[in-house]
């Protein structure tokens, strides 16, 4: 479990990082927190020619409020998200979810940018950012552009970034007032069997608007349960609505069959967990109304 040979670069600015990536013509990888990159290299499943260490690029570690939007630099660590008052206030769903990532050591090193590029189908950050409607900013040799979370993945562990592009920040639009999150794990904070996140707003008439439900661990990528969302638009989230939405969520899944759980069991759990999360959401709105 020792990595194959590689060159190591520690650029002083982001442009230099991109140049290094370009130099290796797809053979280099960015090193952020290293929590996925290092194990993959040590197992020799990945053998990059070079590693471009971006940990010196402090610009990428900023967390700021820009009007309605919250901007999270790619190098912001899980622990920072976990304890930041700004995140607690503006992105409570993300704060709730980040506590489910790995252990303290992993959260001290792992970054949001690394997590999004890694694109683990069970990852909390990809799911949270998807449900919150975030976009990511990317810098490459031909300049900067943005990618919506919906378009970030081609499949499991496959972000649509080019190998010479760096993810620089995550932009999150305003957070709806209500949210809920649950995940099912084989052990504490393990990669999940499945996870469900939801956000929404209950209008003054008691009807829900803009409800979003995301599912993790039950498809190649985190997915939105669009059929369930459509069913619930304008509903009061009563028990029948919730039951229907739980069933409709099955349309979004194509679950894996692995040591954590069979595809059949994951499919069995999806309506159960969606319903639980929707009941949590409803309870949160009811509590707020009191």
């Amino acid at each position: 479990m020792k990595s194959a040979d590689f060159a190591y670069h520690r650029p002083g600015d982001i442009a230099e990082a991109v140049r290094h990536l370009q130099d290796y013509d797809g053979g280099a990888r960015v090193l952020a927190g290293g929590q996925s990159l290092m194990p993959m290299m040590n197992m020799r499943l990945w053998r990059p020619d070079a590693v471009v260490d971006i940990n010196g690029l402090t610009d990428l570690a900023e967390l700021t409020a820009e009007g309605d939007e919250t901007r999270i630099g790619a190098l912001v660590r899980y622990s920072t998200l976990e304890f930041s008052p700004l995140v607690a206030e503006r992105l409570p769903l993300l704060k709730a979810m980040v506590a489910f990532v790995g252990d303290r050591q992993v959260r001290n090193r792992g970054t949001i940018g690394g997590s999004l590029v890694q694109g683990d189908p069970t990852g909390e950050m990809p799911l949270g950012c998807l449900v919150l409607g975030a976009t990511v900013s990317v810098l490459g040799p031909s300049g900067a552009h943005t990618i919506a979370m919906e378009d970030l993945y081609e499949g499991a562990y496959t972000a649509t970034l080019a190998p010479d592009e760096v993810l620089t920040e995550v932009r999150v639009p305003p957070h709806p007032p209500h949210f809920a999150f649950r995940e099912c794990c084989r052990r504490h904070n393990d990669f999940c069997v499945l996870s469900v996140a939801a956000t929404g707003r209950m209008a003054d008439d008691g009807r829900w608007r803009g409800l979003r439900i995301g599912l993790g661990g039950v498809n190649d990528t985190p997915v939105l349960a669009e059929a369930s969302m459509a069913l619930l638009e304008g509903s009061r989230l009563d028990d029948a609505d919730i039951a229907a939405a739980g069933g409709a969520a099955l349309r979004a899944i194509d679950p894996p069959d692995d040591i954590r759980g069979s595809a059949e069991y994951r499919a069995h759990l999806v309506p159960i967990y969606v319903a639980r999360v929707l009941r949590d959401l409803r309870a949160s709105a009811q509590a707020a109304a009191r």
Partner: peptide, 16 residues
């Protein structure tokens, strides 16, 4: 062996 790493072998943590 399909569970031959700490990733897939579910030894309990203190939290479990």
């Amino acid at each position: 062996l399909v569970s031959g790493s700490m990733l897939d072998y579910f030894a309990p943590t203190i939290m479990d």
